[in-house]
Design a protein around this nucleic acid. Structure first.
Lengths: 152, 152
DNA sequence: CTTTTCATGTCAGGACTTTGACATACACGG
DNA sequence: CCGTGTATGTCAAAGTCCTGACATGAAAAG
């Protein structure tokens, strides 16, 4: 090598040694584990993500929820309708100010979220425990930098 | 706290500070960037992943490719048919030994992969450059451990 | 005030992925 | 030889997600 390129990393010949592959693998494992766990509670992963976000920040609109869960407005629209039909959230049909319709958890929504949350937390913890404790903060920061470098 | 649980990490109150959220965020950014880049070459992410895997290990069967790209056999079946219709891979209609049908890249498949590869590599490199160089190996290992802890 | 720009909600269509199911092919132990 | 178990390829149906498009409401610019 020694070609003076800014990135001195030698590009891994094997695809499985590249960051993208590993990231995809870990994310697929997480998605799969969450799917399995949430099925017992009658929720899908996007539905759970939506409930969780809505619990922390009540009154979020469809578009805001979509950005917060990394899906399109259209996808979130479907998710919200499903949650609404299931009676887990409420959303006003109209609004005075603007077009954004603020969503809120119902009592049943809070119950369902609380039940599912423990299962999801257990998965997250299993994953967290799999890495050296003192490196967790670094990993969180690195994942952040990776994401920022890509959507920039 | 001080409850004596094996995991001494304090569970982050904010969802966005948990490993699962960050992992999902980074993976979503990667997926999005790859989608954008690959569209110029007429490929989807699963199609590209399939071609890449098939280039490194020619003769893989549908089921083996599915496992290697973290999708179901059924999904990979659709992908393979698409690639076959596009003339990027070939697959025998029958086989003497077993049921597995070994797939191979066509000349056009190699060409298309070579073209798309540079774009994907650039994305991977952008992501790799976003983290401290001396920590790359650790991150790769940690992602591996996380995945292993979940599908175990 | 009018026009432009932007964000939002929604519809339509298509692509992708999954679960569930079935049939085929091989390996093993009876 | 025959049943069991495992692995594979495929079909069908449903759910999920995306791109593209359109209309509405608000804010900014002219």
């Amino acid at each position: 090598m020694h070609d003076g390129t800014p990135s001195s990393q030698t590009p891994a010949a094997d695809v499985t040694e590249r960051l993208g592959y590993r990231l995809k693998r870990a994310a697929a494992a997480l998605r799969s584990a969450m799917d399995r766990a949430l099925r017992e509670y009658g929720l899908t992963v996007p539905q759970y993500a939506c409930l969780e976000l809505l619990d922390q920040r009540p009154g979020l609109s469809n578009a805001e929820l979509a950005r917060g869960t990394f899906v399109t407005r259209q996808s979130m629209n479907v998710v919200l309708r499903g949650l609404q039909d299931a009676g887990l959230i409420t959303r006003p049909a109209t609004t005075d100010r603007g077009r954004a319709l603020p969503a809120h958890l119902t009592k049943e929504g809070h119950r369902r979220l609380a039940a599912a949350r423990s299962a999801v937390y257990a998965i997250d913890q299993r994953m967290t425990d799999a890495v050296p404790e003192q490196r967790l903060a670094e990993i969180l920061a690195d994942l952040d930098h990776m994401a920022a470098a890509l959507d920039g």
